[in-house]
Design a protein around this nucleic acid. Structure first.
Length: 414
RNA sequence: GCGGGUGUAGCUCAGUUGGUUAGAGCGCCAGAUUGUGAUUCUGGAUGUCGCCGGUUCGAGCCCGGUCACUCGCCCCA
């Protein structure tokens, strides 16, 4: 039995779970389309450099979580750990910068070499939207609104809370970072090991530390909002006003930072308490500067990504699609008739289940197992009279229906 | 990468201070019912006790290692 195991951190999506995934990605796709985001897809692997610089050399993702390898031609490629960099690469590769604003929706697998946990996998799936080429705060508001709408249509908006913060523009961020490093430098002997490391890699992260000693130090740390320049403040105010106007509730969280280097201004996360340690269900923000960083023109951008597995764990069991009609031939002579009838019904759009062997009792059991709504019984005596016995499997009522009118009859009962 | 917990049938889980043929429920298969399912009754099959090694007369149980899952840290979706 322990024969073949899936690779650590990967999982099979059997029909039960696949239905949940499909419900999430399909709901998201339909809603995103209403907001004007068009579906697109990029390759699941790219040249390593596509991710390296944008995400940041010091980020956890690039420094220790990427599936990178040299292919047979010696090219250094990486399984995508996230999709924003890939989308921006596609924009540049296809010369789409002239067509801004660009609005994209995507859905697909991502790969990170992390320690698996509840709601955390090495191959996982994300849905996401990107709005590229709009520097106005309305874009942030629309992107967040689309996310909230999707969560709402999935029936889980009430189980999440929107946390909001601003990272300021590039200038603000650079100055604040300098202040922070200067402040923490005075506590080198008191900071936790993790935070000492963060001081080198991403000092903003120290603000988010859970270490009691760090928390004490953080009380006196320079406050970010005091370093925001007027432009950044005005931008953030406009985003908040927009959300207020739409009635989208949020909680300001000055400690909310993003793991990826390319974020500026708005940062947000929809979090839940229902998934243990992996509370973030959707996260994103503004990334002005990313397009330029990747070699394109200076171009604004804002977007989010959400984990399909995490969302799938939160939603109600999706209803199974349409219940099938079970075709049950009795005797050799009925087999070809049943085969044709099944085709006719399918052509008419009905879901049809066929049984392959066994006596009538066995085939009825199968019909029951696949949750068939009706069973169509075709025996010698029915054939002789050009009829079929139509059995309602819920009520048990059974009647004879002329074969010629069977399709119409079943289509009407859908 | 660090710390804790758990691995027994397809699934959920019992299994006494180490003791001889390892159990239950559900599911599965068959029969009661050779043209009528989901109910009921009767019967049946299924295990490298996660894996490797050690201790012991004897290991599902104790010890070491390993793999997987899981919870927390880290990080994030």
């Amino acid at each position: 039995m322990p024969a073949l195991q899936p690779v650590r951190g990967t999982q099979d999506l059997l029909p039960l779970q696949m239905r949940r995934h499909r419900a999430v990605s399909e709901t998201a796709r339909v809603v995103a389309l209403r907001y004007g985001f068009e579906e697109m897809a990029t390759p699941i692997f790219e040249f390593t450099e596509v991710f390296q610089k944008p995400i940041g050399e010091t980020s956890d993702i690039v420094s220790k979580e990427m599936y990178s390898f040299a292919d047979r031609g010696g090219e250094h490629v990486t399984l995508r750990p996230e999709n924003t960099a890939g989308v921006v690469r596609a924009v540049l590769s296809n010369g789409l910068t002239q067509a801004a604003p660009l609005k994209f929706f995507y859905s697909g697998p991502m790969f990170r070499y992390e320690r698996p946990q509840k709601g955390r996998f090495r191959q996982f799936h994300q849905i996401g939207v990107e709005l590229i080429g709009v520097a106005q705060p309305q874009a942030d508001v629309e992107v967040i609104a689309a996310g909230a709408r999707i969560l709402d249509e999935l029936g889980i908006l009430g189980r999440t809370e929107l946390e909001l913060n601003t990272l300021g523009d590039t200038e603000t961020r650079r100055l604040y970072r300098e202040h922070l490093v200067a402040y923490y430098a005075g506590f080198r002997d008191k900071l936790s090991e993790d935070s000492l490391r963060r001081l080198e890699t991403n000092p903003l992260r120290i603000l988010d530390s859970k270490d009691p000693g760090d928390i004490a130090i953080n009380i006196e740390a320079p406050e970010f909002h005091r370093h925001l320049n007027p432009l950044s403040t005005a931008f953030f105010d406009a985003v908040k006003r927009g959300l207020d106007a739409l009635g989208i509730a949020y909680r300001l969280n000055p400690r909310l930072v993003r793991g990826l280097d390319y974020y500026t201004h708005t940062a947000f996360e929809f979090v839940t308490r229902d998934l243990g340690a992996q509370g973030t269900v959707m996260g994103g923000g503004r990334y002005d500067g990313l397009v330029g960083l990747m070699g394109g023109p200076e171009m604004a951008g804002v977007g989010w990504a959400a984990g399909i597995e995490r969302l799938a764990m939160l939603i109600e069991e999706p209803a199974v699609a349409e219940r099938p009609v079970a075709i049950i031939p009795v005797g050799e002579a009925a087999e070809p008739v049943a085969l044709r009838l099944a085709e006719d019904l399918r052509r008419a759009g009905l879901v049809v289940d066929q049984s392959y062997s066994g006596n009538l009792g066995k085939r009825m059991k199968r019909a029951n197992k696949v949750a068939a709504r009706f069973a169509v019984l075709l025996g010698e005596d029915e054939l002789a009279r050009g009829v079929a016995s139509l059995r309602d499997l819920d009520s048990g009522a059974q009647e004879e229906v002329p074969l010629a009118g069977l399709t119409d009859r079943l289509v009407q009962t859908r």
